[in-house]
Design a protein around this nucleic acid. Structure first.
Lengths: 180, 180
DNA sequence: TCGAATTTGTACCGATCGGTACAGAGGCGC
DNA sequence: GCGCCTCTGTACCGATCGGTACAAATTCGA
């Protein structure tokens, strides 16, 4: 029920942000009228956004974070992360909704979810790096660097309208991890 | 006249984005009524945002881009950039308005300004690195990396509510440039 | 096939949106 | 003190906002 329209809903929030995603835009994006929308999400926009966040978080948790924590060998798990990230963000043409919320006023509303998402990403990646033989503090620093670079690459790729930049940045990160 | 309220105006756009910065929030942030606002900016919100972008762009151009291009020695110009960035973005507690617009729907409206801003930043930094002895293509790659990392560090520092992360990322970049 | 329950579109609500009109307050030369 | 011109607050405009109510359409079990 809900799950089927979550992708369209997510896309609407991604493209316009929380405040910019008006009900009319949402009805258009999902193809559902207000009646259906408010039956599925009695809490209105707030609940819609929360559900979308939850879905995105769940996807990253199972497709990226968990493999990073447990995948063997760790080097391959990291490599798989880069491939998944490249695909998920469409080479930087698709924006990171959680990142957008972190920058906007939505940080107050969804602050806990936003913080948890990035904290778990960094921690999972650091765990993988540690298992791959990197030092304790070096792993955390490198993980922070990688996640920051990914987020920044999305900004730059969109700003310059240059998806290749995103791919290029990811490639640099991979080689940095390999040689570190 | 205009110049005096531009900082308050910029802050409003930074905090709420273009769509979220309603006229009522703007009047509150600037202390000016609609009457005064529309006499200063007959073009409405659009003109306000354009002026703010222009002011920000001008500040970066004179305080950061130009010194990067011409500053001697180049290493010191780069170092000055990091200090200016740390101060300007308040250790990641202040958001980059141009970055926010790049992620949001404002990319269509202000696409040219957004693109130019980041392109000049990267190019100016690359020029400085070249003058410091880095290779042609290595300079561009490194410049892209630095600007992306700065933007990503803003996202992460806000998401995790951790200004120290921003400072940490900048420190890593400085040492990377020094040893590259 | 028919009645109940679910699902949907649409009309409507008060509030707020971006923007305009304009009367009056305030400063300034003379 | 007077007239002029700049500046500002406020009332108002149609449109749209998020949200509600509800009747018609649809689905589905029996």
């Amino acid at each position: 029920m809900r799950a089927e329209i979550l992708p369209a809903l997510a896309e609407a929030f991604r493209q316009h942000g929380y405040e910019g995603a008006s009900l009319s835009r949402i009805t258009q994006a999902t193809g559902l009228g207000k009646g259906s929308l408010y039956r599925l999400f009695p809490g209105g926009k707030d609940e819609m956004a929360a559900c979308v966040l939850d879905a995105i978080d769940g996807w990253f948790e199972s497709e990226i974070f968990a493999p990073l924590r447990q995948g063997e060998p760790p080097g391959e798990a990291v490599s798989a992360m880069f491939e998944a990230v490249e695909r998920y963000f469409r080479s930087g043409q698709r924006v990171c909704l959680i990142g957008v919320l972190a920058l906007g006023a939505g940080r107050d509303r969804f602050g806990a979810a936003v913080r948890s998402y990035f904290a778990r990403w960094i921690e999972a990646l650091a765990a993988s790096l540690r298992r791959a033989g990197h030092g304790e503090s070096a792993s955390t620093a490198l993980a922070e660097e990688v996640v920051a670079q990914i987020q920044g690459a999305i900004v730059l790729a969109r700003a310059l309208d240059d998806p290749a930049l995103f791919t290029r940045r990811l490639a640099t990160l991979r080689s940095r991890i390999a040689t570190a």
